[in-house]
Amino acid sequence: MTDTDGETSVATDADSGGTASARTDGGTVTGRTGLRARLARVDAGRVGLYVTLLALVAFYMTPIETGLVTSFKTTQAVTETAPFALPGEGFTLEKWQTAFDVLIRGVGNSVLYAVPATIISALFGSLAAYGLTTTNLSGRYKVAVIAMFVAGIFIPYQAVLIPLTQFWSNVVPLDQLLGFVWALGINDDYVGIVELIVTHVAYGIPICTILFRSYYKNMSEEMIESARLDGASLRRVYRRIVLPLSTPMFAVVLIYQFTQIWNDLLFTLVLVATESSAAAPVVLILAGLGTSQEGTDFALRMAGAFLAALPTLAVYIAFGDEFAEGVAT
């Protein structure tokens, strides 16, 4: 910077004008003299930076904006206006209404498995991580167990699709085992929900365990030991010390797991299969929403997509503060 002297004199100028606020480089200077000075100081690099940033914002926001405005357009408006243009004359809430009517059943079904699966996998992950960090299990065994958990994270969904259907139809024919439930008048399609819960819990435990483990490793060992000496058993230490202190990590894991499970299409395709099923999750219904032989109803698809994404957004907002704390540690 060669204009340091100039800057200092500008600041003094502005001060004497009485309208200036104290500034360091990059701060704001108000008042006529300040404005003129600022314009004079605008350099190409800074302009380029802001232009680039604005372009990036536009790049990332356009699809969302397009989706949002499209969802409020009539079918006619969709074809007649540019995708990102405001609806104007062709504004309607009809598509949202339709999407809501069609999807609400699926949202209910999704909640039915996503919530329990999220909570159970987080809880199991936390318990497993506690066992792997605080107990005096020999280091050699710990490494072997942790290696298996880590390996579990990297098994691709696609690789287990066939074994999964085999498992649920041949090894554990849950459909038959739960015969007494269907006898109560509950649609036996809901076996898919139970299967989804178990499958997602099994698939979620590894990542949850690893996340909790890294958190528990940073927990004060002396505090745990102190609790042991205070007369608490391993289980009581978990219940009264470790679990209450895990809240931030639970927020992280709950948000992560919920989003994963809510958005997953593959397992639902395999375990529930059809959108006409009484137990069809929202993703399954959404996949077929607005598609027909007459063509694609883009407005309806957009409205549906936003509706289906709302619960994950709600979870983020609900656990936002804890999430930030958990990620920071």
Binding site: E222, M223, E225, A227, I241, P244, L245
Partner: peptide
Amino acid sequence: MVFQSYALYPH
């Protein structure tokens, strides 16, 4: 036992 870090339960 009293620990060097005090090991109080923060919650």
